[in-house]
């Protein structure tokens, strides 16, 4: 029995040593994190496919969404454990302290394969060329590019991440309006849209209650008026990853294709009369 306990103790010690090697607990002043394409991308695709079927904002009672969030956290953690990835735990790591919009922005960029530097005070995000374009500081994500414009998504996000994201819009896109559109919909430069499947789910969950739909979409109550319309487009023109430079990108916009309320988003060209189907939401 004593011998068995000794073996168990040795095994336990060995396991702990292995874990330390894979997930360093040494705090370092600066860490540059590089991501490489690995099998985790398959896991990410699985997560993304799950995420595409729901909006996490306000519908956490959905058990599937809870599972997907947990799974996504698992994948993010695994990415950080990969080869050539340095992780700072404890003092010196700001990533572990992020909450709210900043956390969501970081998750978007992490899943998109964006390189970042966490110095414990701020997290700086780099383009593929190594130029800083944004940072998280004091709980906010800030554009730091000198010209005041967000870089093109292709300059900092993995091509595979972008194509996977856009594939979630293959079943058509939807835009919801507080008004009854009669002509072109959206500003001339294009408009944000969400996947039709996600719009269907949110509308179904709202159960005929406009206020509940506003909550699910992360809007203020009253934003959609009393009789909102939905615009469905089966074959949108110019489907693309949002850049953040659009007229529709407000101060709450975060990069990576998911809103701060975790709704999937893309942009399309201005929606022309004849290319869409219009009906009231409820």
């Amino acid at each position: 029995m004593k011998f068995l306990l000794q073996i168990l103790f040795l095994l336990f010690t060995w396991f702990n040593l292995s874990a330390t090697t894979a997930f360093s607990k040494v705090a370092l002043p600066n860490q540059t994190v590089f991501f490489h394409k690995t099998t985790n991308q398959n896991q990410e695709s699985e997560v993304k496919n799950g995420v595409s079927n729901f909006a996490r904002s306000g519908i956490l009672e959905n058990s599937f969404s809870q599972k997907a969030v947990l799974w996504e956290s698992f994948v993010l953690e695994n990415r950080a454990r990969e080869e050539n990835v340095n992780v700072v735990s404890g003092a010196g790591s700001l990533v572990s302290k992020l909450t709210g919009i900043a956390k969501n922005a970081h998750e978007n960029l992490l899943l998109g394969g964006v390189k970042f530097i966490d110095d414990g005070v701020s997290i700086k995000y780099l383009t593929k060329n190594g130029a800083e374009f944004a940072k998280i500081e004091n709980g906010k994500i800030l554009l730091t590019k000198a010209d005041g414009k967000w870089p093109l998504p292709s300059e900092y996000l993995d091509a595979n991440y972008i194509s996977t994201h856009l594939s979630k819009f293959d079943g058509g896109v939807t835009k919801i309006t507080s008004y009854n559109p009669t002509g072109s919909v959206g500003p001339p430069g294009g408009t944000f849209v969400l996947p039709k499947s996600q719009a269907d789910l949110l509308i179904q969950q709202a159960g005929g209650d406009v206020n509940k739909l506003e909550d699910l979409l992360g809007l203020k109550r009253g934003d959609l008026g009393t009789n909102p319309f939905r615009i469905d487009i089966n074959n949108p023109s110019g489907l693309r990853m949002p850049s953040g430079n659009e007229a529709g990108a407000n101060e709450f916009w975060i990069p990576g294709g998911k809103t701060s309320g975790r709704i999937l988003e893309a942009t399309v060209d201005q929606i022309q009369l004849g290319s869409y189907v219009k009906k009231t939401v409820f």
Binding site: G186, E246, A247
Partner: peptide, 9 residues
């Protein structure tokens, strides 16, 4: 003009 967001006014 339309504000350009997914849910707009």
């Amino acid at each position: 003009y339309d504000n350009g967001q997914s849910a707009s006014w």
